[in-house]
Amino acid sequence: MGILEVKGVNKRFGGLQALGDVNLNIQENTVHAIIGPNGAGKSTLLNVLVGKLIPDSGSVLFNGQSVLGRKPHEINQMGISRVFQTPEIFGDLSVIENVMIPCFAKRDGAYRLHAFESVGAEDSIVAQAETMLADVGMLEKRDMHAGSLSRGDKRRLEMAMCLVQEPKLLLLDEPTAGMARADTNNTIDLLKEIKAKRDITMVIIEHDMHVVFSLAQRITVLAQGSPLVEETPENIKGHPKVREAYLGEAQV
């Protein structure tokens, strides 16, 4: 049994079958990539996994528990974190505050009225956030305004915010979209490092084959809302079905 099981998921937008009978079984502690041409339903699938969309039919089980119908914050509290295509951070706050917020969410749950303690006096939270920042190499930027960081640093910060919660499953939505090659390679190294240091399952949705083949242990190819193939990277490369789906899209 995998950590994340998607069974028979269908989602229709008007006349468009965005997802048709999607079955996925993601094994614990692996890096699983979901690739596919534009409009294959990758983002729809991700939105189903995080509770933003509710499918018309089918089930999504995380560690045996259904995530369907739960709010994004509830799904996060179950142990699923998400990295967005464009980094979503708290731009008006400082870098350290950005990392402290998920620490509070992890410790105190979805809501707690702690209006009379002082943030500065929360030593363990501050220490936790600082360790995490050091881990992604951003400790010297701790007091900077998060909104003024470079794109690459924003990505690092967002990763730190997700990882500090020690999620069991990390969902990455095109983590290198729009990045220069050097930044892309940095992100790959960062993800490899993250994976090497802890037990974490990652699901990556990605366009960039370089990223996919550098990281993934399993690859699912999605086309027109349905999974075409699920294979190891070696077997995907020459797969005729994949070539067909990508015809004119990219060289695989």
Partner: peptide, 26 residues
């Protein structure tokens, strides 16, 4: 209140409510 974790959450709401909910906060 301004200096409390509660105040920090309120500022986070102003800054990015989307990120806040994906961070596990209601």
């Amino acid at each position: 209140i301004f200096r409390s974790p509660f105040g920090l959450m309120l500022r986070a709401i102003k800054s990015n409510q989307n990120r806040l909910s994906y961070t596990g906060l209601n």
